[in-house]
Design a protein around this nucleic acid. Sequence first.
DNA 1: GTCTATATCAAGATAGAC
DNA 2: GTCTATCTTGATATAGAC
Lengths: 186, 186
Amino acid sequence: MPIQKVTKEEILAKSLEVFRHRGYHNTSMTDLANAVGLLKGSFYHYFDSKETLMKEVLMSVNIFLQEQVFPIAHDPTLSVEERMETMLKRFSKTVFSKDGGCIVGNTILEMVNLYPQFKEVLQAILTGWTNALVHLYSHTHTLDEAKKLAEQSIMEYEGAIMMAKLYGESYYYKDCYIRTLERLHK
Amino acid sequence: MPIQKVTKEEILAKSLEVFRHRGYHNTSMTDLANAVGLLKGSFYHYFDSKETLMKEVLMSVNIFLQEQVFPIAHDPTLSVEERMETMLKRFSKTVFSKDGGCIVGNTILEMVNLYPQFKEVLQAILTGWTNALVHLYSHTHTLDEAKKLAEQSIMEYEGAIMMAKLYGESYYYKDCYIRTLERLHK
DNA sequence: GTCTATATCAAGATAGAC
DNA sequence: GTCTATCTTGATATAGAC
């Protein structure tokens, strides 16, 4: 009688890590299965295809962010600065990997042209992220200014991830974090 | 007696376009050969492998930028603003494609972890780009400030490319262009 | 130098035993 | 639910005719 080694949630979590690190096309089903501790044949018990799996990974990321991360921007028990710091850290932990990967940026660049059906969830993530930042920035800026600042912060973050990958250091990333905070006050 | 249909330079130019648009892993040798007007068998007359081809594409981009684009930053016949504008436009035309692809960003994200030997040429491009911007910004800022502003502009550009791909508009990209110019004066 | 044909291999996916 | 074995496809790369 077979014993269940993993849950679907564990597969999604581990797959997120691998995709974040290696990108989509450069990750094989064998890589994913091994990371989880299964053989690839077993993997298809949980998912029809690699494409489906990626989509579920992205959807689980989106749900987590919408439920656990973006609402921090509205937490009345924290100061605006504290909300920003907490939210940035929590967001980074989910979306970025230490070696300069980003599940959102990776997937946009690799897949949006090829699989247009991925647009929706990726846009949902980026829109949620933008709105959360806009809310924080609008404490000290007009709505239009806040929108520009939010977009600017996001674009810088994505660029910083790329630089981190190329130069192997977190310097750019830290600078970006600091500027995103500073924009609250100028 | 066989007639030569293409030159190596034409292959490099066409391959750049395709890689910029589709990324590395998502481009097949057939795609490349077709874009050039050959069959893939013929393609191997010019290049040992896809990897070699990509490396030569990147090296040709680097040479073009170092010789034809970055020196604009030092052109004494133009104002600092004119140098920046001309350089940004020329750089974009080489490196970015209309649909939100960037040969530099794409390749860093897809290949640096996998093929470390690509780091050198990619770093050469980004270092050249940084130095050119630093030179322009240092007319109105300290060297340290100029360096931060240059890095910030580059990171924003890379982020803007990603946003352009996701939302299918050049809005982010234009904003980024404007801010990169504005930073000359604040 | 370009073509056709083919070798080789990796990866996604399926079938069926346990 | 997990395994082994296998099918199938698509892509890199090679061989040799023209």
